[in-house]
Design a protein around this nucleic acid. Structure first.
Lengths: 218, 218
DNA sequence: CCATCTTTTGAGAGTTACTGTCATTTGACA
DNA sequence: TGTCAAATGACAGTAACTCTCAAAAGATGG
C-alpha cells in the first residue's frame, strides 16, 4: 500500500468514545502522520479564513503546511474532505446502539445526538462552528456533504439495521433514516448559523418534537 | 448577455403545468436552442450509457453533439447539470400551493407529489428512470444533487413559507422541509432502484404514512 | 550501531472540468 | 437589404486531481 490510511478510528467504547480516541499509544510514525494531518488542516483553515474557500488552492495549503501537493492528496482525498471528514462516526453509531433496547428509535437518536454533541462542544467547539459554517456557505461543500460517509443519514440507517438485527435495511428504515438524518443536519446547521449562541440541546429537542408528532404543526 | 439562459421555465398554470411547457410558440432561434440542448443531452446519455459517467468527457459529448466545448458549457453550467437539471420545479411548488387551504401540509405534499409524478411518468418515464439511476450510482451526482435548485427540500421550504404568507421561514419550517424533502428523494430513488416496476404512488403513500405517525414503527 | 525492509514523501508529467476573451457567424427585425 | 443582438468556436489559462518512480525516513532483526 502506498497511502496512509485516512484515519480509521479505533472502535471506541460507549463510555467516552471521543476521549478514548485521543489516547492510545502511538508509534513515532503514527505520531508524525497525525501531526502532518493536523498541520495541513490547521493551515488550511487559516488560509480559508483569510481568503475564502474557493480562493484557497491546494498548492497554497500544501506550501503553508510544508508538504508537497502529492502529500496533501494522500491525507485528504479531495479538498472538500478537509472540511467534511469527521472521525466520530463510529462513536455516533455506538451511542445510538447502546441506548435501552425497547426505547423508540426517535428517542434513541435524540439522546445519542445530544450526548455526542455535548462532548464535541467541550473539546472543539470553535472548530466545529467554523466547519459547519463553511459547510453551509460554500456550495461545493454543502453539496458534497451528503455523499460522504459522515452524513447522519447513513449513520442512522446503519444503526437502525443493526438494531433490528437484519442484513438489509427495509424500505421503512431507509425512509426513516433519510428523514431523521436530514432533520439532524438542518438542526446543527441552524445552530451554526446562529453563531452557536443558542442551546443546541434545546434545538435538538424542538426538532425531534416536530418529527414525533408527525408534522402536525404545519 | 452572452449565454443562453439555462431554461427558465415559463410560469405554468396549475392546470397541467408540464403540458403547458411543451406548447408555446417558439421563434426559430428558440427552436434551434432547444434542439441543441436536446441533442447535447441525448448524445451525452448515449455516451454515458456506453462508457459510464466518469469515462465520458465533456469534449466527447461536445464532439458527438457537433458543438464546441464552449457551447456545451453555455447550455449546461457543469457536466453534472446534464443529469440533474430539471425543468419542473415551479410546477411542483404550484402543485403544493394549489391544494386546499386547510389541508395538513404533509397531505398537500403527498398529493402534489403523486400528481406530478403521474404526469412525469406519462411523458418521460424512461428518461426519468435513467436519470434517477445515475443519480443514485454516480457519487459525484448523488452529492451534487442536494445543492442544486431542484432538490425537494428547497421546494418544500418555498411552498411552506409562501403558504404561511411570511418572508423568512421559521425554524420549524426548515426542519419540516428537510425531513419531508429527504424522504421524497429517498422514495423516488428507491423506486428507480427497483427498476420502476413498483407502483410509485403506493411507495409515496407508504413514505408519508411513516412521516405522519411520527416514526412510531421503529 | 548497522543493514535491510517498508512506509512515507516529493517531483514531475498528464488529464479533465471549467473560465474568460475575442472575433466570426447567424437569426431577428425594420 | 442592412443593422443589431444573440450564439458560436477557437484559444489560452487555471486548478483539482491521478500516476509513476525514485529518494528519504522510520521500523526491525542482528
Amino acid at each position: 500500500m502506498n497511502a496512509p490510511q485516512s484515519a480509521t478510528a479505533p472502535p471506541a467504547g460507549p463510555g467516552n468514545p471521543i476521549q478514548a480516541m485521543l489516547e492510545a499509544p502511538l508509534s513515532l510514525r503514527e505520531r508524525k502522520k497525525l501531526k502532518t494531518r493536523q498541520t495541513i488542516r490547521r493551515e488550511a483553515y487559516r488560509l480559508i479564513a483569510e481568503q475564502g474557500y474557493e480562493n484557497t488552492t491546494v498548492d497554497q495549503i500544501a506550501a503553508a503546511a510544508e508538504v508537497s501537493p502529492s502529500t496533501f492528496f494522500r491525507y485528504f482525498a479531495t479538498k472538500e474532505d478537509l472540511v467534511l471528514t469527521d472521525e466520530y462516526d463510529p462513536a455516533m453509531i455506538d451511542a445510538v446502539l447502546s441506548r435501552p433496547a425497547g426505547e423508540p428509535f426517535l428517542r434513541s437518536c435524540r439522546e445519542a445526538l445530544i450526548g455526542l454533541l455535548r462532548q464535541l462542544l467541550e473539546h472543539e467547539r470553535e472548530e466545529l462552528l467554523v466547519r459547519l459554517r463553511l459547510t453551509k456557505d460554500v456550495p461545493a461543500l454543502r453539496a458534497r456533504m451528503i455523499d460522504t460517509g459522515n452524513e447522519p443519514q447513513r449513520l442512522y440507517l446503519t444503526a437502525l439495521t443493526r438494531r433490528a438485527g437484519v442484513r438489509e435495511p427495509t424500505y421503512a428504515m431507509r425512509i426513516t433514516a433519510a428523514a431523521i438524518g436530514a432533520a439532524t443536519t438542518e438542526t446543527v446547521l441552524q445552530w451554526a448559523e446562529g453563531g452557536g449562541t443558542e442551546d443546541i440541546a434545546e434545538l435538538v429537542h424542538r426538532t425531534f418534537a416536530i418529527l414525533e408528532d408527525g408534522f402536525s404543526g404545519s
